[in-house]
Nucleic acid binder design. Structure first.
Lengths: 244, 244
DNA sequence: AAGTGGTCTAGACCACCTA
DNA sequence: AGGTGGTCTAGACCACTTA
């Protein structure tokens, strides 16, 4: 009764928010089953259909997956490449080779004006910068710079990053933060000197064009939390994004 | 009864397919209202909930949109840029300026091996190639080459392309074909001579890096129909993709 | 056989728009 | 006031998995 008066959001949206929080709190691990639709419905005082609608939206957002006859499970974190990969140009359906990840370092930097604006920080606010290199059959093909507000990720440990499978995984397991891309920008640039050396582009042939990707990601509350800059060498492989 | 035995797909999926076809056939124009959920349900012999589920999926796929209290409407075709635009690097939320379109030409070419493979054509199959140039404040920033199987688009008229707002719009209105991107590839390349001249890159400074995008799109049946190659000049603007 | 997700229905009520 | 989309329920049955 009173619940009805206090309600501003539909019931399924409230259930969704509640589940989002419980998933974020780690109540269930990856690939672990949630209670059945009926059990959840009973527990939450809603009908199966309403509960199902909340679950369906979380499935659509990639947080859960369902197996008919088995249950509803927590989806694994998206890797640092999400739905993207490096594939041979023109071969849209090629099975992409996994890129090997190499952690290069964790450092503290100050936010540039652009970054501060977009991440809602004050100018020169302290950031954590995580660098990692991606190799394809041993050859460096991509370099990542991940920028995060230092305040929110105090205690970040380089050893975590060295051993985990990527930044996204570390953020989830150590800080309960799940990132979702909001906006991506692509440019073709001449590779800057520092990045060229990290990517092993040697010698006088310094003028190598590179794909520059800048991606803004948000936490589950929708607030921008990560600015990632990525340089990709694309003479042999193309940055490939498959939908669905 | 017999319907039940013949059914292999769930009812809502059948309704969705039926509506997809009727939309494709142009039964309703863009921004025109479909019958109400209840009317459709009665007409199709289904319940409101089932009809609604079919409509919801079409909304999710961008073919329809709904306005509470008003109705369900046919969505306008996605423009040639879809959810992408050219924006200032680092300004993810900038309101992008519309690009001006210039139709350059319609010609016939033969499919390369890659294109033939991906579009399920025989080698050297005839293709239509549509070229168009995109300007930002008068400055050329992008060049499109659209490749389509000539057989399926016999009768394509350059005048249609000159006057319409883009290739996607022409394909829908003249051929009833609605394209959806399946896969995109990005590379940084040195601009080839021909493209450089079309983009107005002059003089000896010939070595300009450009963003190369290759996109494969499919018709509503899911079969690949279009290969689009796009070169973008990204020294001042970045190719920007916003999600949702 | 029991448990789970997946579909479908009929009916109710709410929120919003238009007249 | 009447039409439209949006939410919610209770109950039924189906399809799939596991034991």
């Amino acid at each position: 009764m009173t619940a009805k008066m206090l309600r501003r959001q539909p019931l399924y949206a409230q259930i969704k928010q509640l589940l989002l929080q419980r998933i974020g709190d780690g109540e269930w691990r990856e690939h672990e089953a949630l209670p059945s639709e009926w059990d959840l419905a009973a527990e939450l005082g809603a009908s199966q259909g309403t509960t199902r609608k909340a679950l369906s939206e979380l499935v659509a957002e990639g947080l859960l997956y369902r197996l008919q006859g088995k249950g509803t499970f927590v989806a694994p974190v998206a890797g640092d490449w999400g739905d993207a990969s490096m594939r041979t140009p023109g071969l849209f359906f090629e099975q992409p080779d996994e890129l090997a990840r190499e952690f290069l370092g964790l450092s503290r930097v100050n936010a540039s004006e652009d970054v501060a604006n977009v991440l809602n920080l004050r100018r020169l606010a302290p950031l954590l910068r995580i660098r990692q290199l991606w190799r394809w059959h041993g050859i460096p093909v991509a370099l990542d710079d991940v920028l995060l507000p230092a305040e929110q990720f105090e205690g970040m440990d380089a050893r975590w990053l060295r051993n985990a499978s990527g930044v996204n995984a570390t953020l989830l397991h150590r800080f309960g933060v799940r990132l979702t891309p909001i906006c991506e920008q692509f440019r073709a640039v001449m590779l800057p000197r520092e990045e060229a050396s990290l990517l092993g582009v040697t010698g006088m042939v310094a003028d190598v064009p590179a794909l520059s990707m800048d991606r803004l990601s948000a936490g589950m509350d929708g607030r921008p939390l990560e600015w990632r800059q990525r340089y990709c060498l694309t003479h042999n492989l193309a940055y490939t994004r498959s939908v669905l």
